[in-house]
Design a protein around this nucleic acid. Structure first.
Lengths: 349, 349
DNA sequence: TCACCCCGTGGGACCGCTCCCACGCGGCAT
DNA sequence: ATGCCGCGTGGGAGCGGTCCCACGGGGTGA
């Protein structure tokens, strides 16, 4: 950090809060005893405990986090790292849901949540050092890309880390993800159950694990139904609306007779709808359509989009608890948790 | 905080980071000098500075925030408080845009961003104490309700605070808001320019300042165009889709001949669209429609919704800088900043 | 040449907490 | 009665910074 970036020195309004010493004096006990009461140590007599608790209440004492942190070498804070490029994704329920869960999960443990939006990968070196340097007890990362090296750096630095989603199926760090494959299977089974047989899919970028998993689920569902998987019914999108539109156009060109599409995201599905409409195909009459994410656009599409929902809040809570565990018992954690998805049936399929 | 809530004691991996003392030893200078270099004091000879900077680089030294915080009685952190009830609003670009701006604005000053989701108002007492107790240097609050007392508590506790939006036109705390009135005026002028004359409006809950401001803008635009404001062209919504739908139905009942509607939010507009469609009115042919917020639903409505956009990221940045100023020069701040809105014209009007 | 000043510097004294050692005291076995 | 044990307890010694005082040395003016 260059000197120029330093905030100007100042002092906050000098209303000094009561210290642990003040509590001790008022309660007529030593500092050690107060500390024990605050930290719930059992080795305190009922009398002392009562006296201390009363003094705390009377003084409105709240422990100074910085002092505690300095002494314990803990921070009681974790960082939630969100790549800046993905902040438009904030707009998706994805982030809000997960953040909510994370927040709930942490609050119970008295942990603070630091929100860190990172720019490009160039910053990652600095960021890793920053996070490692007694800043936070652990790190949660969202929207990790397959080639993101920040998690590895954090691992080297022995910073407990939990990811939302994995970078690949060889992910070594602890992470939480939705059952993307299972969700895709649900979607495609639903299409099959509706009598559709020529089912295309619009995938996400295949260097992303989610995209691959959803494609796998598509393949599995067809296979288990004894339907041959035609490779030209698979079109690659990029999780954008325009990408979905282009992919849909391509699918229609290759298979004018197709009667259903599973899109690996709602946003791509919304692009597909536009293209289908332009091509004079009615949804769901001519072509049934299912998306993934159950995002806001799903409800507002015409017709409303059938979509696969992930248990976002639970994912967030799980991330929090995995991280807390990893923080408490270094190295024990590093587990992966897969949570079930669910099909939300609306008008489009 | 009850003892039971306390995290179990533990130590993070004891890879001790270099301290300021280590840097001093390595550079062959005193602690004071190192501190001066880090904090950009001019009272350091070039020779010492160079030596210190080299030692810092070699050791990979990063100052310990807790220690600094303890000594300075600052935290270099601010809290962003978001009412939990509103977290679904995360889904709106509103939050993501503002958070982004805030994050950018703070990063430059080396400030950390603490995300705090609060539950019901009952928590506010605890929260205020918590925030005041040396936790953060300042507080940013989003989605403040007119009757929210947390800001007042913070004010009493002399915690620098900046709000997103104001609670009423008598707001005493520093805040940043969009020119809601002006935005509404833009919308209604656009409808008038399109030849519409029987223009209704769907308002938000009128106990909210934004809602009142947008209604005021509606009235002003009509008045300045010499169009009489018919009170029965005003229907109250509640910023929800269903509310928008109900309000639209009511407007159609009262004024079957109406030819345009200004909805105080996109979400309400999306409800209105459904109702208009159900009533066989074509948008924009029979009834032109404009929303507010330029949210995602706007782009995905059919037809795409003309809407008023707020400069969200700039609002966030401004909030950050107001807060930093207030923190630096206690009491100087407490300003209000109103940022201009802009009409994004799409298919619906 | 001497007094004075100022600049750069080292290091002591905190900031408020936790950790842990040592101590006092009552109860039990000897 | 004496020794021993263990429970509660007080308080010293840090944790890693900042602040500020006091001090040495070179330059300036008398």
């Amino acid at each position: 950090m260059s000197p120029a970036e330093q905030p100007q020195p100042h002092r906050t309004a000098d209303v000094r809060r009561p210290t642990l010493n003040a509590v001790a004096a008022r309660a007529g006990v030593g500092r050690g005893t107060v500390s024990r009461v605050i930290n719930g140590s059992p080795k305190v007599s009922a009398r002392s405990r009562a006296a201390v608790e009363q003094a705390i209440a009377e003084l409105g004492y709240v422990p100074n986090r910085a002092a505690r942190s300095l002494a314990t070498r803990r921070t009681d804070a974790v960082a939630l790292v969100v790549p800046d490029a993905e902040t438009r994704l904030f707009s998706e329920p994805y982030f809000s849901g997960i953040i909510r869960g994370v927040s709930t999960g942490l609050a119970g443990a008295g942990m603070q949540l630091l929100l860190v939006l990172t720019g490009d990968e160039k910053e990652h070196g600095r960021l890793a050092a920053y996070l490692a340097a007694h800043r936070v007890d652990g790190v949660l990362m969202m929207a990790v890309h397959g080639d993101d090296t920040l998690p590895d750096r954090l691992e080297e630095l022995a910073v407990p880390t939990v990811l939302a989603g994995r970078r690949s199926d060889r992910e070594r760090l602890g992470h939480v993800r939705a059952d993307n494959r299972g969700g895709a299977r649900l979607a495609v089974r639903h299409l099959l159950a509706g009598g559709r047989r020529s089912i295309g899919t619009i995938t996400g970028p295949l260097d992303m694990d989610v995209a691959r998993a959803r494609l796998d689920g598509y393949r599995e569902a067809l296979r288990e139904a004894g339907v041959a998987v035609a490779e030209d019914l698979i079109a690659a999108g990029d999780f954008t609306e325009e990408g979905g539109r282009v992919a849909m156009r391509e699918l229609l060109r290759r298979h004018p007779d197709l009667d259903a599409v599973f899109a690996a995201s709602d946003v791509m599905a919304s692009g597909a709808v536009l293209e289908l409409r332009a091509a004079g195909r009615r949804v769901p009459h001519d072509v049934a359509l299912i998306g993934f994410d159950d995002s806001i656009v799903a409800r507002h599409l015409d017709p409303p989009l059938t979509s696969v929902r992930q248990p976002l809040e639970e994912m967030g809570r799980t991330m929090a608890s995995l991280l807390l565990e990893e923080i408490a018992h270094h190295g024990t954690g590093r587990r992966e948790v897969v949570l079930p998805t669910e099909l939300v049936v609306r008008g489009s399929a």
